[in-house]
């Protein structure tokens, strides 16, 4: 089975029902997307498929249908941060950080669809991503800052 992740094509030999998350983590060693719940309750595994946020624990690799996958590693790297990642650093959002890959991927997707989200939009878009440490006040602020940054760009 072939798939494209962060612009690189890969060939994996797995059963079609294996979730994309586990193909990424255990077959390709791309560990930015995290396992948290396995049932779309936490959002830690969020990636983009053709630019849209998807819970990779819920997408069977056989259902990827040629979609191009972007993971947190493909969004931006430490030396070339995406605007959302930059906002996350500036607002010192993370505590344990385990959910933040998913939070950032969800926020980036939100801003792609809705460049100037209201507080209510942010609360609606981001409430599928669980943060057990409770960094929500900082996530809210960072999403707004990233929106401004992206609009100014």
């Amino acid at each position: 089975m072939r798939l494209t992740v962060n612009g690189t094509e890969h060939e994996v030999e797995v059963e079609p029902e294996m979730p994309l998350l586990w193909v990424l983590r255990d077959e390709l060693n791309i560990t930015g997307p995290k396992y948290g719940c396995g049932i779309a309750q936490c959002g830690a595994c969020t990636v983009h498929v053709d630019g849209v946020a998807v819970r990779s624990c819920q997408l069977a690799i056989g259902d990827l249908a040629g979609g191009e996958v972007t993971t947190i590693e493909g969004l931006g790297q430490p030396e070339s941060l995406h605007a959302v990642q930059q906002a996350w650093v500036e607002h010192q959002v993370a505590q344990c950080g385990y959910c933040q890959s998913g939070q950032i991927m969800q926020a980036a997707s939100l801003l792609d669809f809705n460049p100037a989200p209201t507080d209510a939009d942010i609360d609606a878009a981001m409430s599928g991503n669980l943060c057990r440490c409770g960094t929500y006040p900082r996530i809210r602020a960072a999403v707004k800052a990233a929106a401004q940054k992206l609009q100014g760009a």
Binding site: V54, R55, Q58, A60, Q106, L110, F113
Partner: peptide
């Protein structure tokens, strides 16, 4: 689409 797509979690099963 305005907030978070249903399909973000309710993925589409093709196979």
């Amino acid at each position: 689409a305005e907030h978070i797509l249903c399909s973000t979690c309710h993925t589409t099963k093709d196979e």
